[in-house]
Design a protein around this nucleic acid. Structure first.
Lengths: 220, 220
DNA sequence: CATGCTGAGATTGTATACAGCAAGCATTTT
DNA sequence: AAAATGCTTGCTGTATACAATCTCAGCATG
């Protein structure tokens, strides 16, 4: 893998933090693939720092659920099994539904802004980094940082697989748009119950499509 | 603070992990109080290890939201403000409601076992460590590890303040029991919608009582 | 041929050394 | 006297050294 050096900009970014961001990006973007071994020394030399910041970053990845580490045996990028992916989607559905429900009861101005946007692409686990898709905006206006973070974390864990959907993901906007639009309408109208229901259904539909789309070789 | 040494039992517990557990217990039990400064050197010497494992534990506390760390300036045990406590309770209500809803749709045997227990004390943020209160059991039977963990984490962040409620907490079982019983009944009956509603109302009631009970000196 | 042992190499866990940042205090300057 | 400046001290961030543990090829043995 190509060697990267951290920009020599000592402003506000410790090596540990930089490494952490770098590794998360690498995992989400698929440069570090599910199941891949994470070796402190190799990562450290690739990123041009010592093992210490790498270790701290590793522990953070572990806390986020993006990697597994066993004592004295190093770690791997988490490789989801079907059951776990179903759980992740289920949890995402619940958290997103809760966010939608709360968002529906927030200040009307914010909600109106939701209805007026045009939503770029489907949002289920969705666009790799852009922060203007349904979820990112939803998490922004729901008014509860904890739910937002929980949702964002869960989404992060699904993203590595999103890329692998390939063609199936291309069809997403087509099938996803109606559910997404319905959710947005309900939120804009301030109907909490309908928002929850629509959001939950939307994510669960995404789940079915994703689980169907991934062959057993990548999702055992 | 009294000096503690980790048991010299090399079975399956790295120093870092031990320190982490120790610090979490200290925070939840109030031995390390909200706002208290966390100094690597002092903690390390108190726990009889070097700074390295302590640093890793610190990062983990940060990820859990139990402590804040600023670059080059060390950290403190998180001190909640009223607004944040409200957010935590709100998030807990949503997550617990989701768990209750899911639990209501799981295998009947598990649900029946819920109805037959007798519930020791109220459960809102509740009992410091026991794992037989409503929440712990709920998280166990809801069948979704992610929601369980999210809920447990949020609860952990509230626990340090629970202790401070003092007399108000004593009254808890009285006011809390009805809502709790209703929630359990609904889950045992397999009524998802009622389970969610009852659980949400139950936690939000706990919130109001907690926020009322804490003076401004401890909850700015 | 299968099985178990062994020792070298690799990798992690922990301790320590060193450098850099931050806050407080004393001294100087106006 | 008040403000500015430069030390001093304590702490954190990172690198590196050392110890403990795991892995696995190679060999002996049944």
């Amino acid at each position: 893998m190509t060697r990267v050096r951290r920009p020599k900009d000592p402003t506000e970014l410790s090596a540990a933090e930089w490494v952490r961001q770098q590794l998360i990006e690498d995992i989400v973007a698929g440069r570090l693939r599910p199941g891949e071994k994470l070796c402190e020394v190799k990562i450290a030399s690739r990123l041009g720092c010592s093992r210490t910041p790498v270790r701290e970053a590793f522990r953070h990845l572990g806390a986020l659920g993006l990697a597994n580490f066993e004592k004295n045996r190093g770690g791997n990028v988490v490789r989801l099994e079907r059951a776990m992916m179903l759980e992740l989607f289920e949890a995402l559905a619940e958290v997103a539904a809760a966010c939608a429900g709360l968002a529906a009861s927030r200040a009307e101005a914010q909600r109106r802004s939701l209805a007026e946007r045009d939503w770029p692409h489907a949002a289920a686990p969705a666009g790799s980094g852009g922060d203007d898709d349904l979820f990112s905006v939803l998490f922004g206006v729901c008014g509860n940082r904890l739910l937002s973070e929980a949702g964002a974390t869960i989404r992060c864990r699904l993203l590595p697989y999103w890329r692998l959907l390939g063609k199936a993901a291309e069809e997403w906007p087509v099938h996803g748009a109606p559910g997404q639009a319905e959710t947005v309408r309900a939120m804009a109208a301030g109907d909490g119950r309908a928002s929850r229901r629509a959001m939950r259904a939307f994510v669960l539909m995404a789940r079915d499509q994703a689980v169907r789309g991934l062959p057993c070789s990548v999702l055992p």
